[in-house]
Amino acid sequence: MSAARLELRHLHKRFGDLDVLADISLSVQPGEFVSILGPSGAGKSTIFKLLTGGLRPDGGEIFFDGVALAEETQPFAFMPQRDALMPWRRIIDNTTLGLEVQGMARQQARERVAPLFAEFGLDGFEQHYPAQLSGGMRQRAALLRTVVQDRAMLLLDEPFGALDALTRSGMQRWLETMWEHHNWTALLITHDVREAVFLSDRIYVLTERPARVLREITVPLPRPRRDLASPQASAIEADLLETLLNPPSET
């Protein structure tokens, strides 16, 4: 039985005549932060849809804590690319939305979420509307809405891709701190090589569609990670960029 929290074994997915995933095998250990890098259109988001039940694989297997993932089982808290905050709901009510969808009463959901506002840098903004918050604060609210559901694992689909470079850098540092503090298990999709190096314990690099795992790269940098200009970090980033820009040809 696998010791991995999540394990994908030889996943295949096609849409009509279009092969999207040819053979995807990867794993995430409990408490680990793993990233998936690959060209645009390689099927990274398709992997998340397979995990969350939006799609069914055409082949292969998905295991969670050593057991085949059932359709009715949902151990994942999913954060999409956009914050998807509802503009007519105050921040306190946006952050409770996932709990309410699960059937929790609004007042009970508020009582669970409220103590976390300070930790997420949102203290005093409970009654604000999304349009009154900065991009970084909106993403913090979206992450709070995600993690308060108390799922076993986080799926993060380019959560900082829409932010400016300075805000994105700050959010990456904040996410690393929160991940370590809460001992989350996380799987991240990103196009940002530096972001993957900064956050990850391991990185899977996918080929172009139909996607296969081209490489698995360990990131042996100490935490907290503050110096991505170090020779070791720069070497890992350069290696990843070379793999993405000049992938080895298949034999």
Rank of each mutant, 00 (worst) to 15 (best):
I47P: 00
V197L: 03
L143S: 02
P220D: 15
A84H: 09
T95R: 10
D83T: 06
R89Y: 15
T95F: 12
G16Q: 01
I203L: 05
L199T: 05
L85I: 06
H12R: 09
D227R: 14
G31T: 05
L187M: 15
R215F: 03
L133E: 05
T177D: 13
D150N: 11
I36C: 09
I217W: 13
L154D: 00
R194E: 15
A42Q: 00
F33L: 05
P224T: 08
Q127I: 00
R173I: 12
R168S: 01
L245N: 02
L187R: 09
I236T: 03
L6H: 04
A70P: 04
P247V: 00
W88K: 10
Q149P: 10
E32H: 06
M1C: 11
A211F: 15
L143D: 04
T251L: 07
F48C: 05
A70V: 05
L240H: 00
D93T: 03
S27D: 14
D150T: 06
A196F: 02
M178R: 11
F198A: 14
I203N: 02
N94Y: 08
P115Y: 15
T243I: 05
S249L: 15
L85N: 02
D23F: 05
R9K: 12
R173N: 09
E111H: 13
F15E: 01
E126W: 04
I62Y: 06
G135K: 03
R202H: 10
A105Y: 08
L11G: 02
L155V: 11
L166E: 01
L26F: 09
G136A: 02
R56C: 04
V28F: 03
I203E: 00
R112E: 14
D123A: 14
P87F: 12
P159A: 06
S40T: 11
L244C: 07
L166M: 11
P247C: 00
R138E: 11
A152N: 04
T243R: 01
D83C: 07
P130Q: 09
A131D: 09
F120A: 10
L97G: 06
L143N: 02
G54Y: 04
Q108N: 11
P30F: 10
S134N: 09
K44F: 08
A196C: 05
G124Y: 08
A162R: 01
N183M: 14
A22G: 13
F117G: 08
T95L: 14
R90C: 03
R223W: 15
Q29T: 10
R194T: 14
S45W: 01
E180A: 11
T190M: 07
D65P: 13
F198N: 04
T95D: 13
R168C: 00
R89N: 09
G121Y: 12
T185C: 07
S27G: 10
P30W: 08
R112T: 13
R145M: 08
L55V: 09
E32K: 04
A42T: 00
R5I: 12
A233E: 03
L155F: 11
L116Q: 14
L199C: 09
I62C: 09
I236N: 02
M104R: 09
R168V: 00
G103T: 07
S2T: 15
H12Y: 06
G170A: 11
R5P: 04
H182M: 13
I236L: 10
L122N: 05
R223I: 14
E119K: 14
L99Y: 12
L133W: 07
L187I: 14
D23M: 06
V148D: 12
R223C: 12
P210C: 13
T243S: 03
